[in-house]
């Protein structure tokens, strides 16, 4: 098992993609199928942007072994009041400012779901959100 962590800073769009790009580099070394790498990168990138755009920053925990990659994004709030709605395509609570930057189209969570094998979202309003995603290399 290999463990890595990345800090995500609120509003720091300029550095979005640092975690996904590091993960990509690692997966390339493991001879993982290119399409699979792409899916993981997209999912992690979306989650990263979510934490930057909607939350007050957070941490990304990556656990990697021979069979799978598990990525946990823990943010510091504000939390999602209605997870089921957030999973709908096009539903967005993003501010005008965030949308202006080309983010916040309401495709984040649905996009993550499409690209991973397992997705678990826990959220408490006022506390934060935990998104856990797993991709199996053999599936």
């Amino acid at each position: 098992m290999m463990h890595t962590e990345f800090i995500v800073v609120e509003g720091d769009f300029a550095n979005a993609g640092k975690a996904s790009s590091e993960i990509k580099k690692t997966l390339k070394q493991l001879n993982i199928d290119n399409q699979k790498i792409k899916k993981i990168v997209v999912a992690v990138y979306e989650a990263e942007v979510n934490a930057i755009a909607h939350a007050y920053g957070g941490t990304i925990f990556v656990d990697l072994d021979e069979e799978k990659i598990c990525v946990l994004i823990k943010d510091k709030g504000p939390g999602i009041p209605d997870i089921a709605r957030a999973m709908e395509k096009g539903y967005s609570t993003a501010s005008a400012k965030v949308r202006e930057m080309g983010f916040g189209a309401g495709m984040g969570l649905p996009n993550i779901k499409n690209n991973v094998d397992e997705l678990d979202i826990q959220s408490e309003v006022g506390v934060g959100t935990e998104i856990k995603m797993i991709v199996n290399f053999n599936s």
Partner: peptide
């Protein structure tokens, strides 16, 4: 002809990766 891949066998590659880290 990837020079990134540490080994064709994923389990060997993972061992190599762990060692490198």
């Amino acid at each position: 002809r990837s020079m990134m891949v540490l080994d064709e066998d994923r389990s060997v590659a993972f061992q190599k990766l762990t060692k490198i880290k």
